[in-house]
């Protein structure tokens, strides 16, 4: 009989199990009621099965989010792993929804599930994309906003993976600052 090698039937395990969440803005419901867990996966093959099955970000209506977080971390500031953390934030122009949004989100997902941030990958909690008519946002969330070394390492690798030129600066903001801001912008704690 033909012998089938294990690499032909064993799926490729990821370092972490991940959960994909979907948020749809319904003003008649609470924020938490608008947040739904879509599915969890922990292999490369199951990631693609899910990714290929769902809508691209650019097809979502304004007010929707996708969040990908490590299993056990909820995609909200209040979670124990997020409450002292912050995010590397990319703000996209309206034009970039057509040209860049889906590409950047997929690259963000691949960075996370592939553990692209080396020994600092443990600091990455997840990522969020906000689809908004005024401008879409993509962010990588990390667990501790005081962990400068990990945060700047993650930021540099992320910027490199997105192919952003050196003159483009991205900023990291703590969730506390974002939650308590008074104007429309939050001050950057770090930049790369």
């Amino acid at each position: 009989p033909e012998i089938v090698k294990p690499e032909h039937y064993i799926k490729h395990p990821l370092q972490n199990r991940w959960a994909l969440w979907f948020f749809k803005n319904d003003k008649n419901k609470t924020w938490q009621a608008n947040l739904r867990l879509i599915s969890k996966f922990d292999t490369v093959e199951d990631f693609w099965a899910l990714y290929n099955h769902i809508q691209l970000c650019s097809n979502l209506i304004s007010g929707c989010d996708y969040s990908l977080f490590k299993d056990g971390i909820e995609p909200m500031w209040e979670d124990e792993k997020n409450k002292r953390g912050g995010r590397w934030l990319l703000t996209l122009s309206k034009q970039q929804r057509k040209t860049d949004l889906d590409r950047i989100w997929l690259e963000t997902l691949l960075c996370l599930i592939g553990e692209a941030f080396d020994e600092h990958s443990d600091d990455a909690c997840g990522a969020v994309v906000n689809v908004r008519n005024k401008g879409d946002k993509i962010a990588i969330w990390t667990t501790d906003c005081e962990n400068r070394e990990s945060i700047t390492y993650i930021g540099r690798i992320y910027k490199e993976r997105l192919g952003l030129p050196p003159k483009v600066v991205i900023g990291y903001q703590s969730h506390t600052d974002t939650a308590t801001k008074s104007g429309s912008t939050t001050k950057n704690k770090y930049v790369v």
């Binding site: 064993i10 490369v44 693609w48 691949l110 599930i113 592939g114 692209a116």
Partner: peptide, 20 residues
């Protein structure tokens, strides 16, 4: 060790049907 995968490796599986 850590299970790390680079983007090309991951992208290589996008259109491979789920195994047997």
């Amino acid at each position: 060790g850590k299970k790390r995968y680079d983007r090309e490796f991951l992208l290589g599986f996008q259109f491979i049907p789920a195994s047997i």
